[in-house]
Simulated assay, not measured.
Amino acid sequence: MLTAMTKVKSVLLAGLIIVGFAAQTGKAHAASTEVLTVAGGCFWCVESDFEGVKGVKEVVSGYTGGTVSNPDYRQVTGGGTGHYEAVQIQFDPAQIDRDQILSMFMRSVDPTDAGGQFCDRGDSYRTAIFYNGDAQKAAATKAKAEAEQELGQSIVTPILAAQNFYPAEAYHQDYYKGTKLIVTRFGPKRQSEAYKRYRASCGRDKRVKELWGASAPFVGKH
């Protein structure tokens, strides 16, 4: 009987150890990912920029900052929802920190433009940084101050408390590398080619280069 009880206790103890290890692993996994939410005009472009950055795990296009629940693309770009086209950047802080992400973000947009970004005009295309917690707020404030000092111009990008983030429709995700054939003003094009034409014609990289010069992290990479 003693031997049987000892075996039972051993099995229970092993089970508790496994559960504890799994819980610790889960916590470690959660701690290895941080999410920053930013708005930089067309979310296709911001997604394209950051998905190639080492340490970035995923970038999701979506809508945030407004008052309408579960908005769609037409509602947001049509105005009146208060939402921005935005992205959530999921990254590993052990490989790249929030200061680096935010510095790169500021130098990938025109933060002096309050009316939109490049050829895309209207409230949904404005820039913004949405913080979650004091540490992100401090990092955003620092990034904005450094950008303002480097440019010698007033930065209009607001720093806002994070709100509900609504992922955009499936066809917007990874649009820049899509293979679907679509009809555009340039004629029938694969999504990836249409995206490149759009980005060039919108003047995004040209304007960013004018503003930031060699500090622009993504110019020439598309």
Rank of each mutant, 00 (worst) to 15 (best):
A161K: 15
A162K: 10
F118Y: 01
A4Q: 09
A170M: 05
I89D: 01
A94F: 00
P217F: 02
V109Q: 02
S192N: 14
R204D: 10
A94I: 00
S124I: 02
V59N: 04
L13K: 15
G65C: 14
T33C: 06
V87M: 02
I89W: 07
F21M: 06
T67L: 07
W44H: 11
A30M: 08
V59W: 05
Y175T: 05
V208F: 01
T141Y: 05
I129L: 10
Y73P: 10
A200W: 12
M106G: 14
I101A: 01
L36I: 15
V87T: 03
V68Y: 08
G133V: 03
E34L: 08
K9I: 05
F186I: 11
A135W: 05
R197D: 11
A128M: 10
F50C: 07
G220K: 04
A23N: 02
L102I: 14
T6D: 04
A139R: 11
Q153E: 06
E34R: 06
V46P: 05
M104Y: 03
Q117P: 08
G55Q: 00
T77H: 00
L102V: 11
N132Y: 11
D49A: 05
Q100S: 14
L160E: 14
K196C: 04
Q100G: 10
V53H: 00
D49P: 07
C45M: 12
A39R: 15
P111K: 01
A135L: 12
N164D: 15
I182N: 01
T184Q: 07
A200R: 13
C202Q: 13
Q100W: 03
A4V: 14
R107D: 04
K206Y: 08
V38T: 05
G115P: 01
E193Q: 15
A139F: 13
G178C: 08
K142M: 05
L2Y: 05
A14R: 15
R185D: 13
V19D: 00
V59S: 04
A140S: 15
P111L: 00
M1K: 06
D205F: 06
I182L: 02
A145R: 13
G116T: 00
S61I: 07
F43P: 03
Q117F: 02
V183M: 03
M106A: 13
G220R: 03
V183P: 01
G20C: 08
K221L: 06
K177L: 04
V38M: 05
Q95I: 00
I17Y: 10
Y166W: 15
W212R: 09
K27S: 07
N70F: 09
H222K: 07
E58M: 14
A31E: 12
V183W: 02
E146R: 13
C42A: 06
L13R: 15
S48D: 04
T81E: 04
G187A: 10
Y84L: 12
T64W: 15
K137V: 11
R98C: 06
V76L: 08
K9Y: 06
D174V: 11
V19M: 04
A94L: 02
T157E: 00
A14T: 13
Y63K: 09
A114V: 01
G79N: 05
S69H: 12
T184N: 07
R185I: 08
V208G: 03
L36T: 15
G80E: 00
F105S: 14
V56M: 04
D99I: 05
R126L: 04
A22W: 06
A135Q: 12
G187Y: 08
E210K: 15
T179R: 12
F165I: 07
I101K: 00
G122V: 01
C42S: 04
R74V: 05
Q191N: 02
E169M: 02
